[in-house]
């Protein structure tokens, strides 16, 4: 364990050094992030210009869901997204050799090699906005409900990680699937930040099973707001564990299939 902590510390130092060279870029990304968040909330506002309630969710509740979706997406970008989405490239061009020959767990290295620190600044900004929002709407949930929902947020991150890993592990089997990550990014962007209660049963089932975008923000927020039954919560916990075990097994199985492409 100590060895892995030492490696991660070194990776963080690398990330810091990388970030220090790109300060202008970070400011630009921060500015764009504000623009993007503004657009998202403007869109919700436009929505609620025409209705009082959206599939049983009030405007404040949809705002909250969007905030959580933004934060969870940011956590994924900060720690994992860029690493996992690079898997098809390193498998195709033989770069995986470099990871396989190191005396550490390959998946650990592949999943954590880059920490995108600009995302941390954005996360701090988003956290501050969320806190400001909660100060404005203090009665949306209690502190106990929040504590109860924390495991669900962790499960949301776990499920997202596992699903991204599963998608990218497919690159061991199919030669060119460059756009496999668009499947996640596009659908998570379109579906993840809305209450899925508005969708028909077939699509809801799909987003709670085969393409599990609803676990990232919808399930934890619905839990926080008391909109989901105890069975739903149990299902989310079991699903997160199940998909993670499956993704890890599939990774191990697929790595055995890998044959080096480099010299």
């Amino acid at each position: 364990m100590k060895k892995y902590l030492r490696i991660y510390k070194r990776l963080l130092e690398n990330a810091l050094s990388y970030q220090a060279q790109r300060r202008g870029d970070t400011w630009m990304k921060l500015f764009l992030n504000i623009l993007w968040i503004g657009m998202l909330f403007l869109f919700i506002n436009v929505f609620f210009e025409h209705t009082q309630s959206f599939a049983g969710w009030s405007k404040e509740e949809v705002y909250l869901l969007t905030f959580f979706w933004i934060c969870i997406d940011e956590i994924m970008i900060l720690f994992f997204e860029q690493n996992l989405t690079a898997i098809p490239d390193i498998v195709t061009d033989g770069g995986l050799d470099l990871y396989l020959t190191k005396p550490v767990n390959t998946l650990f290295l592949v999943s954590t090699q880059k920490v995108l620190l600009f995302s941390l600044y954005r996360l701090i900004l988003e956290g501050a906005l969320l806190l400001g929002f909660l100060t404005y709407y203090p009665h949306l949930f209690s502190i106990w409900q929040f504590i109860f929902a924390i495991p669900l947020f962790l499960c949301g991150i776990m499920t997202t990680y596992a699903f991204l890993l599963l998608l990218n592990t497919l690159s061991f089997w199919f030669f060119r699937i460059d756009n496999v990550n668009d499947l996640w990014l596009s659908i998570a962007n379109d579906v993840g930040k809305y209450p899925i209660d508005a969708l028909p049963r077939s699509l809801r089932t799909l987003f709670l099973t085969l393409i599990p975008v609803a676990f990232a923000a919808y399930v934890p927020t619905a839990t926080l707001l008391g909109k989901i039954s105890i069975y739903g919560i149990l299902y989310a916990l079991i699903f997160a564990l199940g998909i993670l075990v499956f993704a890890l097994s599939f990774w191990r199985f697929s790595v055995k299939r890998y044959s080096s492409a480099s010299s």
Binding site: T51, F54, A55, I187, D190, L199
Partner: peptide, 29 residues
């Protein structure tokens, strides 16, 4: 030639555009 890519692209498109009508129908009341 890249049939897997095409298949993924079909899935993305079909799902993305299947979701939006339902989201908007919810606000019609």
């Amino acid at each position: 030639m890249w049939r897997e890519n095409l298949f993924i692209w079909i899935v993305i498109n079909a799902l993305t555009y299947a979701v939006y009508p339902f989201i908007f129908i919810a606000i019609y009341g």
